[in-house]
Design a protein around this nucleic acid. Structure first.
Lengths: 320, 320
DNA sequence: TGTATAATTGAACACGTTTTCATTTTTTGA
DNA sequence: TCAAAAAATGAAAACGTGTTCAATTATACA
């Protein structure tokens, strides 16, 4: 591997001039600059990353810490990563993937943390010395990006009310996390606003769990009811239960999901859902982190909340 | 940040002794070893990654190059990454994620490349100087991990024949890549073996494309036929078309998919599929690469081919 | 034209670690 | 008990880059 020294020798200049051509080209005369560029090209010179990191005391690496198990089948993260990678690439930062089990979580310029549960704050996030941006609103003062979960669930509930449903059941995930509370709150607010009776159930985030729970409920049920679900997985399970039971969607029963990353397209009839702009949120996470890395001002908490979008499809309205 | 020097000062030994405690503890007397461990703990010492990389001329980083667009909704990659990460972690290697558009693809100890198309070899893979392991069989001499695509498709075809189907149609992806040719070959071999007529169609890997193609075919069709599909996406599309057309699955029409990562669980009726052991393949990719990194012998091509598994479900057999 | 200023270039050092080699101390074996 | 071998320790150099500061050259201004 050619070093800066080899380039300098070939171009008959000092190492310093080469370094300057790389980092501050405007500080070098056109003549020498050309010589150096040519020499770099001839030698196929690539700057040594480690040497640069050592002397500048920064790695040009951002770690993305996914605290949920990655071998879930969740396509969500791949989209988030895609957004983050896109933005980091632009600014010459590398994306390193770490999990809860990784040995070295430090050794980087900053971290993006996702899939976090409340109990992870003290154990994992607090000891970190680097700038951190979280995926998910929090009251610990960490900067974050999130989707407006409450608003999203209000949109779904409002939609069901708009199209004439009154008995609307909330199917949530049994996690006592802020995002889940917000989704529940959105449902409750809308139901209260219209003076409707609130009914909530909580379960694991799997379509199987939702299917059996829904199937159970359908036995003492009246058509003309709807399920507003806290994820597309759950929505998908409910759709299956309803079909198996023999009710018609959306005439007898309407269903909405949440997330809109992928599963909603798979369901049949296609699932009305609240879509999160996951890729854009990934990009914003990266942008916020890079800003933090470069101006080390740790002022007060910065948060960016994205508005979700209601995607209306056949699980609530015919002919979509 | 504490350095090795600070630790040495606190433990009243030389830097060298500290370095040795870290890398060759057996070469240091128990007494000093204890002192050094205590000092490291007190100072919360973390070795400087860049300094080590510089002097040893290795980064302890493995890059995973995903050449397909990552913002596909494909859960496949997340599973592969999970397997790779799991294995790299064990050996203290970091996983860095890069795409076709990334600036610096070098600067690592080795690469795992996936989602590659034939045209990428010369442009992207060949210039790399580091050890490389590919996900997918190849005739360029690169080490690889792959699933036995031909065998997998033979299993699916055999299964359809076993349960009594004779008119079996192959729905493939319109990519002239080895993995696709192998799947097609598997289908053809089995059909020839039983003297059955081969019919093949090729399309984009989307359930929508498959659905409309299948719908088109169903009009001049006789029940008792089957579709053997080159992906679960395609299988899912076919299932939809058949349902929409009003035929019964699996009585009138049977359908099989391929991949078995996720989508197959979503279909309803559940899709019989050929499951690839994606996580295990990820682990093996990492293992092979690490072996290559540590014994720089670049002998002849090494390849590991995993056997897929036929998962029989309701799209071919009742009551599964 | 001469001087002050700006632009350009280079030499020496620093970053934090491991490697190499030399030195000191301990153990072994007769 | 003494020499030889082995084990333990440390000093100095090296890895490839950027930073600091000094030296040189070119430019601006009167």
């Amino acid at each position: 591997m050619a070093t800066i020294k080899d380039v300098a020798r070939l171009a008959v200049v000092s190492k310093m001039t080469v370094s300057r051509v790389i980092n501050h080209p405007d500080k070098v005369s056109l003549e020498l600059r050309r010589l150096v560029y040519q020499a770099m090209k001839d030698l196929n010179y690539i700057p040594n990353f480690a040497a640069r990191a050592l002397v500048q005391n920064r790695t040009q690496i951002v770690k993305v810490l996914i605290l949920e198990e990655m071998d879930t089948t969740e396509p969500y993260y791949m989209n988030l990563l895609s957004g983050i990678a896109k933005e980091l690439d632009k600014h010459y930062y590398a994306l390193q993937l770490v999990s809860r089990h990784s040995r070295q979580i430090g050794s980087c310029d900053g971290l993006i943390v996702t899939g976090m549960r409340t109990k992870d704050y003290d154990e994992i996030i607090a000891p970190l010395e680097q700038p951190v941006v979280l995926f998910g609103q929090n009251e610990r003062g960490y900067d974050f990006v999130d989707v407006d979960n409450e608003q999203g669930m209000m949109m779904a509930t409002q939609h069901l009310i708009d199209i004439g449903f009154e008995n609307i059941i909330f199917f949530g995930i049994d996690l006592n996390e802020p995002f889940m509370q917000a989704r529940k709150r959105g449902y409750e607010k809308k139901m209260s606003e219209f003076g409707l009776t609130k009914t909530t159930y909580f379960m694991k985030n799997s379509s199987h769990a939702a299917q059996s729970k829904a199937m159970h409920l359908l036995h003492n049920f009246r058509p003309g009811s709807a399920f507003v679900c806290a994820s597309d997985r759950i929505g998908l399970g409910v759709v299956r239960a309803v079909q198996e039971f023999g009710y018609s969607i959306p005439n007898d029963v309407a269903v909405t999901g949440f997330d809109g990353v992928f599963l909603d397209q798979i369901a049949d009839p296609k699932l009305t859902t609240v879509r999160q702009p996951v890729i854009e949120m990934g990009q914003e996470l990266a942008r916020m982190l890079l800003k933090k890395i470069n101006n080390n001002k740790s002022d007060k908490q910065v948060g960016r909340i994205f508005q979700p979008k209601l995607i209306i499809r056949q699980s609530t309205v015919r002919q979509c």
